[in-house]
């Protein structure tokens, strides 16, 4: 019989599949951010104006702020249960690099919120008067931007581990850090709606995502380690 050695990569894979499986078994957590996103986007026609022409002008901001807040909503539960039932402590002492496990958890968060939010955005876009031709651009920019949002959020969630009722604090920490994503993302969406080339802001979003992928898991691992001391 051969002894199977767990590499960092396969450990991360195990964490990822575990998180996904947990989410599938409890679909309410999966649906809530999406429902929140939809409600936020649909409040604008009611609160502002039903005129599609006017809504189209604010659609980029509505979509991005909505996605930002919805992705934040799901963050609170990213580490909470794992911290209370001791799973996180096992992560720290299991001998696998915590950075890889944090990256896996962040990826799971993105797959469970960022990706569904992105896929839902075009539907909401139609309700806000966004032309169908703009949808590929909106999908692409949100796809890149939500990755960074999940990465920033994981750091914030790790930092607020030791805080009782840290929900509001979590938003206060992560929202200012998410400003560049919001700026570039909303601009990309705006360009997509007006039918222009959106490669400029898309490159910038890509750069942010690369920077986040390299640095955020390190910071998240450090934060979780501190939070569990």
């Amino acid at each position: 019989m051969t002894v199977r050695r767990t590499t960092a990569f396969s450990a991360a894979g195990l964490v990822l599949t575990r998180d996904l499986r947990l989410a599938v078994r409890r679909p309410s957590q999966l649906i809530q951010p999406l429902a929140f996103f939809a409600v936020v986007a649909l409040l604008f026609p009611l609160g502002y104006t039903p005129e599609l022409g006017k809504l189209r002008a604010i659609a980029p901001g509505v979509l991005w702020v909505g996605a930002l807040l919805a992705s934040m909503l799901a963050l609170e539960s990213l580490f909470r249960e794992d911290a209370s039932d001791g799973t996180l402590e096992q992560f720290v002492v299991c001998g696998q690099p915590l950075v890889a496990l944090m990256a896996a958890k962040t990826l799971a968060h993105w797959l469970l919120t960022g990706l569904p939010l992105t896929l839902m955005a075009p539907v909401l876009g139609i309700a806000l008067g966004v032309p169908v031709e703009a949808m590929p651009g909106i999908l692409f920019s949100l796809l890149l931007g939500t990755v960074t949002l999940s990465l920033i959020g994981a750091v914030g969630a790790g930092l607020t581990l030791g805080v009782r009722r840290g929900g509001v604090l979590l938003s206060l920490l992560t929202l200012p850090l998410a400003v560049p994503v919001l700026v570039f993302g909303a601009r990309a969406t705006e360009l997509a709606i007006s039918g222009e080339s959106l490669m400029g802001p898309l490159y910038l979003l890509g750069a942010l995502a690369v920077l986040g992928i390299t640095l955020a898991p390190l910071a998240a691992a450090a934060a979780v380690r501190i939070g569990l001391e």
Binding site: G162, P176, L177, V179, P180, L208, A219, I226, E229
Partner: peptide, 29 residues
């Protein structure tokens, strides 16, 4: 928000460093 002083020190230190990496990006954006 963190009661334990040592933990508050280190957690806020991570935040300050993350912030300092972000400030130039925020200013640029």
């Amino acid at each position: 928000g963190i009661d334990d002083l040592g933990r508050a020190d280190r957690a806020s230190a991570v935040l300050a460093i993350v912030g300092v990496v972000n400030i130039p990006i925020i200013r640029y954006s």
